[in-house]
Design a protein around this nucleic acid. Structure first.
Lengths: 337, 337
DNA sequence: TGGGCCGTTGAAATCGATTACAGCCGGCAG
DNA sequence: CTGCCGGCTGTAATCGATTTCAACGGCCCA
């Protein structure tokens, strides 16, 4: 009668050694004699043994895995970042697990269940999680915030200079000769959206351009809100000649809707996006946008969490990654008045 | 001197009961007396106790979590599916963990490490994983395949009728009057791509339309391969008047490139996609495509894995979900010759 | 010849929660 | 008055790997 699953004890028996020796053979091969090592290898092969992670985790008090909390997997923006994270973590022997913090059936307080017995580290991409669930205590694993951040939480941040990115967009439009520039906002609650809006205001002021509240259109980063923004723009008596959208998704929605209503981009309105998601190089017109180094963001986040897991005492740092204007076809000089 | 982490034993001490009673109070509140329950509750609050998952997993031999293996998180196609999975699993008290099977640093044999001590169930969205890593044995948790599948693996499948979907696209084009219809293929190795190509051939034959090998253009589902497909199409002496692309991403790339070269869609060429990803309703022209019920696919996959985890003996089933043609602006009757 | 050290190994404690089993107590039926 | 049952609780075994500690054998050097 055979057991369901071979244990280390079974391997030990087959190899004629003790469980301790099998454990050592598998995790520190250099401390056991070559003959023993070989015997263990053979026994493992013969029994089909694989380690029981739960038991190891319990004993070692670590899981060798990092959890990423992303606000919305539906947003293609996160994909490449996660790939960067995964690559760096894998090299260090860690697993990456991705958890969506949104959607029906998902608990807002999911972060509370992510204690040290679940993950050795946490990468938070969602700036709207309740800070009280993430305050450092002896249960919470090391944590970094990436892209978005939570104001009331002291933790290392990896992010881009959102205000500067918005500034690049505005400066580009100003350089083309636009003097009436609007901004399609991200969701009010979102820190990125606020930082970008601030950048817009600053740069407009720096160019002595008007900052008109009615030219700041509400949006929420989504395609659909891009369309709504377009309708708002069309409905204006006194339309800006250029609109900087706080996300590429909104820019796509905006362009689609104005085109449908008979306007041309960039002749009738110049449009700038933010993110440089894959698709925007392949729409018509190709979108001028602010590139975020997504892979690098992921790499950086992974490196910081690794160092934090190695030495929890590291002070909260703030990594600012550079952004870049990608000039394509959706912007041009404004039509002569 | 306080411990790093409160254990169930500490709670027991504070509450003046045994660890067993604390455990019962927390997991089966109805078997302990109301006073004891209250005492335990208070002690938990006072100590700030949270359960150690590693210990519980070890004892109970289950993790209450399901792992989804997706071929490429970068593909926005998976997002809504995963949301559907997550919603159903959450209701049953299970966690969903997402693992990307691609990218540098990620082991092709990742599936081999996902034994019962890691996950109670597996949902595989990647048809190209090595089947030998997934053969059922006593270590492998219950498994379902969703969207894609692996030919040599006996496991429940949740998928759409790819051939029928392709048929809908071709029938639609035929109905509009197209007689010269091309197909931009998915990656050769991919089962979905093959199923769709078969569907194309069948439906063409059913309409007595020519099946010309040179009209089957190579592609790999990516945006960039859509552009290449467009260049191939343009280079042809004898161009089809309509092209059915095996993915929406390719359709976007295709449209962008033909537009850039001065062709109009749908006047010069009708284009049909496959998937109905969010964005394609917001490009110009809005894309006619085959909708996959992504949320339902996720729900169905979750339900099947749940029933499999409850009763491993269930026979391999095959769930076929319906697809639907979404008619938008990228298709019209062919120009008069 | 004896002492000490190194390389290797095994016995047993440990990680922290769950649960089988047994015991206790009060109430009720015979 | 005895015996049994049911509700509640505690003791101790258990899950499976890791790791501390001690011990063993062989070798070198004094």
């Amino acid at each position: 009668m055979d057991r369901i699953t071979p244990r280390i004890r079974d391997v030990a028996q087959v190899a004629g050694v003790s469980p301790a020796t099998v454990s050592r053979a598998l995790s520190k091969p250099d401390v056991v004699s070559p003959e023993t090592l070989e015997a263990v290898r053979a026994a493992v092969a013969q029994t089909g043994y694989t380690i029981n992670h739960a038991a190891r985790n319990l004993r070692q008090k670590r899981t060798m895995s990092v959890v990423a909390l992303v606000p919305n997997l539906a947003n293609p923006f996160f994909s490449r970042i996660l790939a960067g994270v995964s690559a760096v973590l894998a090299q260090a022997g860690y697993n990456l697990l991705v958890v969506d913090t949104e959607g029906p059936g998902v608990d807002r307080h999911i972060a509370r269940t992510l204690d040290r017995s679940r993950a050795d580290g946490l990468i938070v991409f969602d700036g709207l999680l309740p800070p009280e669930d993430l305050q450092p205590d002896r249960l919470r694993p090391p944590l970094v915030m990436a892209c978005e951040w939570i104001e009331d939480l002291a933790a290392p941040r990896i992010r881009i200079d959102n205000a500067a990115g918005a500034g690049l967009a505005i400066a580009h439009l100003a350089r083309l000769g636009h003097r009436r520039i609007g901004h399609l906002l991200g969701p009010e609650a979102n820190v990125l959206a606020r930082a970008r809006a601030d950048g817009v205001r600053q740069e407009l002021a720096a160019h002595d351009l008007p900052v008109r509240p009615e030219w700041f259109l509400p949006g929420d980063f989504s395609l659909e809100s891009g369309r709504r923004g377009a309708r708002d723009w069309i409905a204006m008596a006194d339309r800006p000649t250029a609109v900087f959208c706080a996300s590429d998704q909104m820019a796509c929605g905006f362009i689609a809707e104005v085109q449908r209503r008979g306007f041309r981009v960039p002749q009738d309105v110049s449009v700038v996006g933010f993110d440089n998601i894959d698709l925007v190089d392949h729409i018509t017109p190709a979108l001028t946008t602010i590139r975020q180094p997504r892979w690098s963001i992921g790499e950086a986040a992974a490196r910081v969490i690794l160092s934090l897991m190695a030495d929890a005492a590291a002070p909260p740092s703030d990594t600012l990654l550079p952004v870049e204007l990608i000039e394509r076809e959706s912007t041009s000089a404004p039509a002569a008045p």
